[in-house]
């Protein structure tokens, strides 16, 4: 296989195993490129990409922008806080306006689940989902699994636990799809109020006790507590969450094996993870950030190859 089947990257759910592996292999090459003295290749020099962020983001937007620039694409950025969206313009109008300025590809983040899927049906442009509400965040799951693959050699047969707010997390859902396609066993762990009621229907194990979960796994992906998404109280206080679900050094030391720690960032140090765990050698947090650029270069490169 040497090209993607789909014309857009909307979610991991729609990707085949072969497509994920193609993205990984392409990312290997780009990881090599971004570690050279000159970190740039001219592949996308005639392509213009718009990063449309209707929701705040620092690292994802920065990572996409770096990926685009290292492929030599022209980049325009749009964020809703400084735009006509505030004046009442619809999503489709906003995007059509941007496309009229001859933009070839769109990277979109939106607070509504399905916003990129809606656009993909309405406009004739390549669309990359950079996070749609609580639904999917495909490039994050790709870089998470890529980082695990890089450290452990393969993902097949590995046990991965995703800890924290599963209910509001698009990272969790995309990761579940990606890990299962790559042959891993997946468990979710968190307070019962933050686990979706029917999550086990996805074929994942459910565990309420963090110590048992850590004992079971090879890899723990610790999610951030997203206070901005919680309209009501799912747990009494941050301090209590931290007491029951915060991962600390003592828990890691109590295990009879070494596990790998992932975190999609930004870290709330002392809440879901302590500094001593986040800064340890088996935490891949900064590798994830580096791999994010390579993964996004691979996705954009492969999709650009399908432009007419």
């Amino acid at each position: 296989m040497n090209q993607l089947i789909k014309n857009n990257l909307l979610g991991i759910k729609e990707l085949s195993l072969e497509e994920i592996e193609l993205i990984f292999e392409t990312a290997d090459n780009f990881k090599d490129v971004i570690n050279r003295p000159i970190k740039k290749v001219p592949s996308l020099r005639d392509v213009t990409i718009a990063n449309i962020f209707f929701e705040n983001s620092t690292r994802t937007q920065l990572s996409f922008e770096l990926a685009e620039k290292r492929l030599s694409a022209d980049v325009v950025n749009f964020s809703s806080s400084s735009s006509s969206v505030k004046k009442g313009e619809t999503l489709l109008d906003t995007v059509n306006n941007i496309l009229s300025m001859k933009v070839d590809m769109i990277v979109i983040r939106h607070s509504s689940p399905g916003a990129p899927h809606f656009l993909a049906k309405k406009v004739n442009s390549k669309i990359v989902n950079a996070g749609d509400g609580t639904h999917e965040h495909p490039t994050q799951a790709l870089l998470d699994t890529y980082s695990i693959r890089e450290r452990l050699g393969s993902i097949e047969g590995k046990k991965v636990v995703i800890v924290g707010d599963i209910l509001h997390s698009r990272v969790a859902l995309s990761n579940i799809f990606a890990l299962q396609k790559l042959g891993a066993e997946v468990m979710v762990c968190g307070p019962a109020t933050l686990l979706p009621k029917y999550i086990s229907a996805l074929g994942v194990k459910v565990e309420l006790d963090i110590r048992k979960a850590l004992n079971w796994c090879d890899v723990a992906n610790i999610l951030r507590i997203q206070l901005e998404r919680q309209r009501k109280s799912y747990f009494p206080s941050l301090r209590e969450y931290s007491l029951y679900y915060g991962v600390n050094k003592e828990m890691i030391n109590a295990l009879d094996k070494e596990i790998i720690i992932l975190h999609p960032g930004p870290i709330n140090r002392g809440v879901e993870i302590t500094s001593s765990v986040a800064d340890a050698d088996n935490a891949l947090i900064l590798d994830q950030v580096e791999n994010g650029v390579a993964i996004r270069m691979a996705v954009l490169y492969l999709l650009a190859g399908k432009l007419e």
């Binding site: 193609l22 090459n29 490129v33 592949s43």
Partner: peptide, 22 residues
């Protein structure tokens, strides 16, 4: 050296070429 990402005919030959190791 792999020239895939430096070719001037990317997107003009139909499918993107898979890169090899540099």
């Amino acid at each position: 050296l792999d020239t895939t990402f430096h070719r001037d005919d990317f997107r003009r030959r139909g499918i993107p070429k898979k890169a090899s190791e540099t």
